[in-house]
């Protein structure tokens, strides 16, 4: 299933998210069950299954990791859990350090330090997203290691945000 096609958008990483969301809303409205009251059951079923597709496509495209995976998929490149790609040792080392630093802020309940670590990682996320855009416009194959980095960065940010809720 190609989420770009479902939302009738050009397949690119630096997608205009506002435009994509707008398209999602338009299509959802057009496919809403209320519009199919009194129509044949087959038509209602079709509209419903298309509405589900449209929702799923938007969920995929608004998440940068899933958007990158969808683009790679379009290029026939496997990026899922079955792909045998190995992580770069230096990235692993850095991420291990960062995750340990995060774990320390939990133990010491150090909210300012936690926010510091998160801010640094958010800057990094912005840089990685730029790098992904460049990789996709240049050669999708080179996007794989950048996507790996993005996954690590986002895992960190998810953990950091959960921890912030916990410490507040």
């Amino acid at each position: 299933m190609n989420p770009f096609k479902i939302l009738e958008l050009e397949p690119r990483f630096d997608l205009d998210l506002d435009a994509a969301e707008h398209r999602h809303r338009e299509l959802s409205r057009a496919l809403h069950p209320d519009r199919f009251v009194g129509r044949p059951a087959s038509e209602r079923r079709l509209a419903l299954s298309r509405a589900i597709e449209v929702n799923e496509a938007w969920r995929t495209l608004r998440d940068p990791v899933r958007r990158a995976e969808a683009l790679l998929n379009l290029h026939g490149i496997d990026s899922g859990e079955t792909s045998s790609a190995k992580a770069d040792p230096e990235l692993l080392m850095e991420m291990m350090e960062q995750r340990e630093a995060l774990a320390e802020t939990r133990a010491s309940k150090d909210l300012p330090r936690l926010r510091d670590l998160s801010a640094t990682m958010r800057d990094r996320q912005a840089r990685v997203l730029d790098a992904l855009t460049k990789a996709f416009s240049h050669d999708p194959q080179t996007a794989l290691p950048v996507l790996a980095e993005l996954r690590y960065v986002r895992r960190f940010l998810e953990e950091a945000s959960a921890l912030e809720d916990e410490l507040l």
Partner: peptide, 13 residues
């Protein structure tokens, strides 16, 4: 040994 699963963002030492 430091390894990771780039597909899910796990890191293991």
């Amino acid at each position: 040994g430091l390894v990771g699963a780039p597909a899910c963002g796990d890191v293991m030492r």
